[in-house]
């Protein structure tokens, strides 16, 4: 009996592609154009991934953030009272949106890049002429896409519970985008050094979540006694949350210029480190 796999395999009427396909090395495209196409392909793949597995990527953060709104709105919010002249729910909402943006930007890149490493299909990209910048930026944009989509959905849901004036719309969007970019690069670094699935949960669980919870999402840093107040200034997420809150409510515990400085520092630092690691092949080339 013949193996059906062997007999139904080739299409006898199809042309041998090696006789018909022009070699990419003969094409007259510029390197810049090729780099752009490679980058765009990676972005398309990442966006497609987020959309394809939306019950895993988009739904859970929206549900969990809605639970925060319910708890800090009708359940606890009225008992806590006002903070910096706004209701408690209004106060925490920018932080909750920012929390969703940064954790999802981070997790998207970590899970996508580590998944590609784990299944070895990262080799598809590594054997191609794509530059390290195109690979890094492609993954990062995927993370930014997920972070911002979730941030937007959470923001829309928040409007059902709280009045959000959005005092500085451009600044609000800029802070969300920059934070998302910084954490997407951070996620990329985590994925590069990760050797197993534990390694991709350690940073989100033991670093990201505590820093976010202690990053002024639920309280004003001015309420803290020393030395906790001073220590809090070492937490970069504090600056991002406050800048975002300033954009929405016009209130912040710290200067906005300083927050943008911290954001820029993190973006440049994470980007440089991720690019260096990718070029060296750390965690992906032996």
């Amino acid at each position: 009996m013949t193996n059906p796999e062997a007999t139904e395999d080739r299409n006898p009427t199809a042309r041998n592609p090696m006789q018909t396909l022009r070699s990419v090395s003969d094409e007259q495209r510029s390197r810049l154009s090729e780099a752009w196409v490679g980058f765009a392909t990676t972005v398309r793949r990442e966006v497609h991934r987020v959309v394809r597995i939306w019950p895993q990527t988009l739904l859970p953060p929206v549900i969990s953030t809605c639970l925060y709104f319910i708890i800090f709105g009708p359940v606890l919010g009225d008992r806590i009272g006002q903070m910096q002249g706004v209701t408690y729910l209004q106060y925490v909402t920018p932080g909750l949106i920012m929390m969703a943006v940064l954790t999802n930007s981070y997790q998207n890149v970590v899970s996508s890049f580590f998944g590609a490493k784990f299944q070895h299909h990262i080799e598809e990209v590594l054997v191609s002429p794509m530059s390290s910048q195109s690979i890094l930026l492609g993954y990062a944009v995927g993370g930014v896409f997920r972070g911002l989509v979730i941030g937007a959905v959470v923001g829309l849901v928040a409007l059902l519970f709280a009045d959000l004036p959005i005092v500085h719309p451009t600044l609000t969007i800029a802070v969300a985008v920059l934070t998302s970019v910084a954490f997407a690069f951070g996620g990329f670094i985590n994925a590069m050094v990760a050797r197993n699935f534990d390694d991709i949960t350690i940073v989100p669980t033991f670093v990201l979540t505590p820093l976010t919870m202690l990053g002024g999402v639920f309280y004003s840093v001015n309420l803290l006694a020393e030395p906790w107040q001073t220590l809090s200034y070492a937490n970069p997420i504090l600056y991002m949350v406050n800048a975002f809150r300033y954009g929405i409510l016009g209130r912040s515990d710290m200067p906005i210029a300083l927050a943008f400085g911290v954001l820029t520092l993190f973006i440049v630092g994470f980007y440089t480190a991720a690019l260096w690691m990718l070029r060296r092949g750390i965690g992906i080339r032996s």
Binding site: N11, R15, P17, L21, E27, V37, T41
Partner: peptide, 21 residues
């Protein structure tokens, strides 16, 4: 696409290879 081939052409090429296979 990773080799710099624009998406529309990439799909045509992919189709040709998949048909042959």
């Amino acid at each position: 696409g990773y080799y710099g081939i624009p998406w529309r052409e990439a799909r045509e090429r992919a189709g040709e290879c998949l048909r042959w296979m």
